[in-house]
């Protein structure tokens, strides 16, 4: 008799079918990255690392697209600069700076730990990411928003 039971018995086909695989977040795996339930700081930094990575790749393409305005002419570029130097857009730059800082600094941590170094200190390294990143973000934000 197979693990699914005797063929021909009621329910045999249903039992033979593979069961559904559940993931955190209820549905697809990517939503599971964002499900905070039961996650520790390591899992949350993993999720943030992935999100900032995806955001930076998306930004790269937007950036390349925007640079193509240079091909349209000087006035198109000047109009664009007028928009992106508004306060609202500068806030977006601060978010971008956060993504760059977190992804870069945490990337160093991930590379170190992931290569088998300082594995027992991975939590301390995460706090080092915060300790270096937070002041750098604050300085950068003040600079971008015109406070310096």
């Amino acid at each position: 008799m197979s693990a699914a039971g005797t063929p021909g018995l009621p329910g045999a086909a249903e039992r033979a079918a593979p069961g559904p695989v559940r993931h955190k977040g209820g549905a697809g795996g990517v939503r599971g990255w964002l499900d905070p339930r039961g996650r520790t700081i390591g899992g949350r930094s993993f999720a943030l690392h992935r999100l900032t990575g995806v955001a930076l790749v998306a930004y790269l393409y937007v950036h390349l697209g925007v640079l193509s305005l240079l091909l349209v002419g000087e006035s198109a570029w000047s109009d664009f600069l007028g928009v992106v130097t508004s306060k609202g857009f500068l806030l977006f730059d601060v978010v971008l700076l956060f993504a760059v800082l977190f992804h870069g600094l945490n990337g160093i941590r991930v590379a170190l730990v992931g290569s088998g170094y300082a594995v027992r200190h991975e939590r301390a390294l995460l706090w080092a990411v915060v300790a270096i990143g937070a002041p750098a973000l604050a300085y950068g934000a003040l600079h971008i928003l015109g406070g310096l």
């Binding site: 390591g42 899992g43 930094s45 993993f46 730990v113 992931g114």
Partner: peptide
């Protein structure tokens, strides 16, 4: 393939 989430050890 591991990305150092460290959740397994936890």
């Amino acid at each position: 393939r591991c990305h150092v989430g460290m959740e397994c050890t936890r």
